[in-house]
Amino acid sequence: MSPGAIELVLFAFVLLTALATAAFRDVLAAIIVFAAYSLGMAIYYAVLLAPDVAMTEAAIGAGVTTLLLLLTIAKTVRPGRDEIFESIHWSGLLVVGAFTTVILVTVTSFPEIGASDAPIVSNPEVSQYYIEEAYHDTGVENAVTAVLAGYRGFDTFGEAVVVFAAGVATMVVLHTEVFTRD
């Protein structure tokens, strides 16, 4: 499938904001551009028919992450340097360029986007099974929720534990025994 106009605009927006995030020396500027990037991604996900993911990216990627990043730089001092942009780190660019090229080479063997014969979509025993049986097996209509809390509920258990672990982690890292106050 060739990209339509919306996809092209999103493509350009996401790529530019990502580049700007990398380029800005000022951390506050980078955080704000990164929030715009996350929102662009969220819209991109929605265009690719993933409303749940779009909503999560907007609430967590653009929302909570940005808040925490802002809080962090408020707790620390921004670098008071004059340059607006980062200088280019050539050896890093070389390594990363090689890595990106490898990925691009593998991309040529990917199935086309939206192809109905891609195994991930067509696999009759997993993805198609979820579509056909999710309502019967779990009683909910949103197949994403059915897979998330039903079929792959254990992943979600692990995920909830990761969130809990992050909370415990900040307490240990910052040497406090309370989240707020006794």
Binding site: F164, G167, F179
Partner: peptide, 11 residues
């Protein structure tokens, strides 16, 4: 709870 907790511990 963790979103709140993270925010206040970091703050």
């Amino acid at each position: 709870a963790i979103v709140i907790g993270l925010f206040f511990t970091i703050a």
